[in-house]
Design a protein around this nucleic acid. Structure first.
Length: 864
RNA sequence: GGGCAAUUAGCUCAGCUGGUUAGAGCGCACGGUUCACAUCCGUGAGGUCACAGGUUCGAGUCCUGUAUUGCCCACCA
């Protein structure tokens, strides 16, 4: 026989060797011989400098799909990659520099870029190895990095094409400026936090205006009131005179704009187009001048006179104090609560200010992206996110794709400086020149001194091209074979940042959707459903869990009980539970292998007993259900089906039943089926056991997914035999329950007649334990209701007395049930409208209930 | 301010297009030295499915409203 297995499954003994074998056998690569439709997933690239967290561990969903399709014979490609993660990495790197007493300004942008690249290259293997340790069957030979030359080249081409199509433009606009990062960010990269700040009521000629930012008053170019506000009608369209905190008098115009809420403050507002998004909009509507007060360093500019050079927060206090001294302050509300914008990555308050940026016109792109989902060319799971996606896109405004950060893909633009040599006066009209490289710039625009653009792309601009860029658009064989990809599986938190933009850019560039289905997973919370955070100390480190309980245990815990789009709760106890499941599977295998003869070789099983038929029917049902569940993205259901199949059906009933005369072929067949079904979720333990099976040289990872085969004569099911074992199970359960409730130890069952008992008596006795069976025509014992023929459980008078109460309770339940069934059947509308099959079932049930009530009545009459 | 989700057993969650008497795991109680497994085996208790209406022969499931919790978006001079 095969060698005996260890008493418990030890994941650490198997995992790395199994993974190495999978990979070296080429199983992770798409099978060139597979003829079905290709199945493709592009892995959302983790930060190349990051550490594995539960968000990455959720990629197990991708692995499940990939393994399932691979086993079904599809050419599968799960393409992994890592992300340079622009600002996120830059912030981390700068923190390190700060520890060494340095900053990025000790470097030129290109030196800085090289330093971060070196750091990234040194770290990248870390996250990759961590992903591999989770058993992910991705094709590492195709690993991509967002800064690989072929990727950046495609990103450049996209930009160039967009520019040629008139979708890209430069403009001065108000943006979310982070003074720490010295860069602009998109709205989506901003978080708002509520805080309490002083609300200053300042005097402005005849007006009193409420503001939290008196330091920006040097940039005020109007006072705005609501057009319906009669208090101020007299001033609208006129200029008023006011006194500056700097001492001089100045004129300022009064405008009427619907944006102003007459109920807030005094109903009049100072308008600072350069430093407030709403004021900027008002400025556009009323053609107001834009006067910057704060520079990109967050300090006040020359226009602020004696406050120039002060950081904004400091200037606010100083200006307010001086205004008070000069009698320009009406009063201050110290308990004003409002929300303030912070940069999501570094936590610095955002300074809205006007800068020149590169913008992408999104109108055409978003229309196509909306249509793709509305027309179901792309399906989002769960479907409710389709609405969210569409609404977000409908409200999307032009996208600022430039960042003044240094770690990223440089925008392919050059400037000619000191260009008298070129002698082309027109260059003043075209201040930027599109070119990928300086050499290309020279080639197109002539010799001269060129300076590269220092702005880089928003990370999301490049990562939105990830699906087609990684596949080698436009000519790569992978692109030809695997695009559009099948599924995009990612966290629901980046539906906007990433998914929607991949659709826009994918459609723009390739004319096809980047993926057919979007599967969104929720966030993984702690055991009480609370968000994990370092400060709460409730963070679960996936690698610690896999080390302790095995990778499969974590994978099962992240699959079962977790539904798409919804947050899931994870506890160590849950993971431990699935470690136990893996051990159960191991021990089932250990038991089966232990009883196979030395020279055993597997054969198609023959069904020889009711239990055999019963098991085969369970296996068939499970194969159908698990296949259906995975196909429908119900991975939790699939996992639960397998769990119950192994533990309840196979281990607790069939294996116990089989002990008297084991059907080796069926035991092996069942084990193999279960291993195959569970493999996508728990690949290691299943492959480890598979490797111990007799006559199996191939790996489970590339074994065919099971199908229900009803044509094999040896395995044609008999409904009667299945029913017979079901009855055995019911009888055993009833005997166990009765005995436990009555506190009996050894019991005797008596049967009057029937094949059921004569054929299955030994089996029942063994499964029920401590049971003797006798054949007699009558008994004063307790009737065994589950038995289709007359049978009793012998018990003494004391036990019988105890049981009368229980029988009454059962009778009450049965009668209540009968009443509900009768109500249904006497309802003409029910009989008429409900499906015939259902009505039939109700009738059968009714008859059965009547019969068991009769039995109970008889028994009670005897006892009482 | 707008939207989405959740509310089912002590805890964490399933419950697909409405259809028998609502499920799982953990926890709990009781009983087990069964030769695969104590990471185990057996038995049990525990739910008027948040609340109020409605549609329907039939509602945990659909509709309306309310409450609580969480999340998203927008805005806050």
């Amino acid at each position: 026989m095969s060698r005996e297995l260890d008493k418990a499954y030890d994941p650490s003994k198997y995992e790395s060797a199994i993974y190495a074998k999978w990979e070296s056998s080429g199983a992770f690569k798409p099978n060139p011989k597979a003829t079905k439709a290709p199945f493709t997933i592009i892995m959302p690239p983790p930060n190349a400098n990051g550490d594995l967290h539960l968000g990455h561990a959720m990629f197990v969903i991708e692995d499940i799909m990939t393994r399932y399709r691979r086993m079904q014979g599809h050419p599968t490609l799960w393409l992994p990659g890592t992300d340079h993660a622009g600002i996120e990495t830059q912030v981390v790197f700068e923190r390190q520099l700060a520890k060494e007493g340095k900053s990025r300004f000790d470097f030129t942008p290109s030196e800085f870029y090289d330093a971060v690249m070196k750091y990234t290259r040194a770290n990248q293997h870390n996250i990759i190895n961590q992903l591999r340790s989770l058993g992910f069957s991705a094709d590492w030979s195709r690993l991509k990095f967002t800064l690989d030359d072929d990727i950046t080249s495609i990103v450049y081409d996209t930009f160039i094409q967009m520019h040629a199509d008139g979708l890209v433009y430069r403009a001065n606009r108000i943006v979310n400026w982070c003074p720490r990062c010295n860069a602009a960010f998109a709205d989506i990269e901003i978080r708002h936090r509520d805080q309490i700040d002083p609300l200053y009521y300042i005097k402005y000629g005849p007006f009193v205006l409420a503001t939290v930012r008196p330091e920006t008053k040097f940039g005020d170019t109007a006072i705005a009131v609501n057009p319906k506000d009669v208090r101020y009608t007299q001033y609208v369209g006129k200029a008023i005179e006011a006194e500056s905190v700097l001492g001089h008098k100045f004129q300022i115009q009064v405008i009427a704009d619907n944006h102003v809420d007459p109920a807030f403050g005094t109903g009049a507002v100072k308008v600072t187009p350069a430093h407030d998004p709403n004021d900027w909009e008002m400025g556009l509507r009323h053609h107001l001048p834009v006067v910057p007060v704060i520079g990109t360093d967050g300090r006040l500019l020359e226009i602020a006179g004696k406050y120039a050079g002060m950081p904004a927060a400091e200037a606010r206090v100083a200006v307010a104090a001086d205004m008070e001294t000069k009698g320009l302050m009406d009063h201050i509300d110290l308990s004003y609560s409002h929300s303030i914008a912070y940069h999501d990555r570094c936590g610095t308050p955002i300074e809205p200010l006007v800068t020149e940026q590169w913008w992408l016109s999104v109108d055409k792109l978003k229309t196509a992206a909306i249509t793709a989902v509305k027309s179901s060319e792309i399906k989002i799971i769960p479907a409710r996110f389709e609405k969210v996606y569409i609404e977000w896109l409908e409200n999307l405004r032009d996208w600022n794709i430039s960042r003044q950060i240094w770690w990223g893909i440089r925008i392919p633009v050059y400037y000619r400086v000191g260009n008298s040599a070129a002698g082309n006066a027109d260059t003043t009209k075209t201040p930027y020149l599109i070119a990928k490289t300086e050499a290309e710039a020279r080639e197109y625009y002539g010799e001269g001194n060129y300076e590269a653009e220092t702005d880089t792309f928003d990370t999301w601009f490049s990562s939105s091209q990830w699906p087609f860029a990684t596949l080698g658009y436009p000519d790569g064989p992978d692109f030809q074979q695997f695009y559009p990809t099948t599924v995009m599986e990612t966290g629901r938190d980046i539906l906007f940042q990433w998914v929607s933009r991949m659709v826009m850019l994918g459609l723009y560039r390739t004319g096809q959707v980047p993926f057919r289905t979007v599967y969104l997973h929720g966030m993984i919370n702690d055991e009480h459903g609370k968000k994990m955070s370092k400060s709460k100390g409730n963070v679960i480190n996936p690698l610690k869990m896999t080390e302790k309980y095995g990778t499969d245990a974590l994978r099962l815990a992240l699959t079962i009980g977790i539904t798409p789009g919804n947050d899931g709760a994870l506890s160590e106890a849950k993971i431990e539970g699935y470690r136990n499941f893996n051990n159960k599977l191991w021990n089932v295998a250990r038991f089966i292998l232990g009883q196979l003869p030395d020279d055993y070789s597997p054969a198609i099983p023959e069904l020889r007993s009711p239990a055999d038929h019963w098991l085969m029917s369970r296996l068939n049902t499970a194969v159908t259900d698990v296949t259906g569940a995975i196909k429908d993205y119900r991975f939790s259901d699939a996992g639960q089906q397998i769990y119950s199949l192994l533990w309840d059906d196979f281990a607790d009933w069939y294996l116990e039943a089989s002990k008297s005369s084991p059907n080796h072929d069926l035991l092996v067949h069942a084990l193999e089926t279960i291993l195959t079904l569970v493999h996508p979720i728990a690949p290691f333990v299943s492959e480890a056991i598979w490797g111990e099976l007799p006559g199996r040289s191939s790996q489970l990872i590339t074994t065919a997914w099971p199908v229900v085969d009803t044509t094999r004569t040896k395995t044609v099911l008999s409904v009667d035999q299945i029913r017979e074992f079901d009855e055995v199970v019911a009888i055993v359960r009833e005997i166990r329950t009765t005995r436990a409730e009555l506190g009996l130890d050894k019991v005797t069952a008596v049967y009057a007649s029937g094949d059921m008992w004569s054929l299955n008596g030994d089996l029942i006795a063994r499964l029920a334990r401590n049971l003797t069976i006798e054949s007699r025509n009558e008994s004063n014992g307790l009737l065994i209701h589950s038995s289709s023929t007359k049978a009793w459980l012998e018990a003494d008078q004391k036990a019988i007395a105890q049981t009368i109460h229980r029988l009454h309770k059962q009778l009450d339940e049965k009668r209540a049930h009968l009443a509900s069934l009768e109500a249904k059947l006497s309802n003409a509308k029910y009989v008429q409208s409900a499906p015939a099959k259902l009505v039939g079932e109700t009738r059968t049930l009714h008859a059965e209930t009547v019969a068991s009530i009769t039995k109970l009545d008889d028994q009670l009459a005897k006892l009482g």
